[in-house]
Design a protein around this nucleic acid. Structure first.
Length: 152
DNA sequence: GCCAACGTTGGC
DNA sequence: GCCAACGTTGGC
């Protein structure tokens, strides 16, 4: 089992959206970066868990835990000209982008802010804390996973 | 296949 | 809203 960190803007799709979704489950659409796509398409496994990270908000940080609950399948928002995720170079025949379904597991009573993550010396290797990193999906080591949970 | 221009991300 | 750091695009 692998661990991940998945970013989303709370105004677009926050952890409350997932919590309220039918069966606590929703697709994770809109990934338009090849590395993040490869993680999602090739590296994730059903049952992997991920931190849900709220970005572009105040404060940004980890707000809960979700679980990967489907295999990867074509991200159909790329086929829809009206979608903000539309990509004319992706087609149902030959999809460029993929997604998976994720399930709400838990919302933390307090956010673990990026400032707190940065202040934790044990987490200096976390991909998301490295300068200039913008990947929306990043792997988390077992050690990092445990350490973050200790910060609750 | 180089690389300049452009668009996006996201913390601050 | 600023802007640095990236990724992508497309002319050549």
């Amino acid at each position: 089992m692998n661990y991940w960190l998945m970013k989303s803007e709370p105004e677009t799709f926050g952890i409350e959206h997932l919590q309220r979704a039918p069966r606590h489950t929703h697709c994770w659409d809109g990934v338009r970066n090849y590395q993040a796509r490869n993680y999602m398409r090739d590296s994730m496994r059903i049952g992997d868990q991920a931190f849900f990270y709220h970005s572009n908000c105040n404060p940004p940080g980890i707000v809960g835990i979700i679980e990967i609950c489907s295999e990867s399948y074509p991200d159909y928002t790329a086929f829809d000209p009206d979608s903000k995720y539309y990509d004319p170079k992706s087609s149902p025949d030959k999809s460029r982008w993929f997604m998976r379904d994720v399930k709400f597991i838990k919302k933390f009573s307090n956010i673990i802010s990026i400032a707190e993550l940065r202040a934790n010396k044990e987490l200096h290797q976390m991909v998301i804390l490295k300068p200039g990193n913008r990947l929306s999906i990043t792997p988390i080591t077992d050690k990092e996973w445990q350490m973050v949970l200790k910060m609750l």
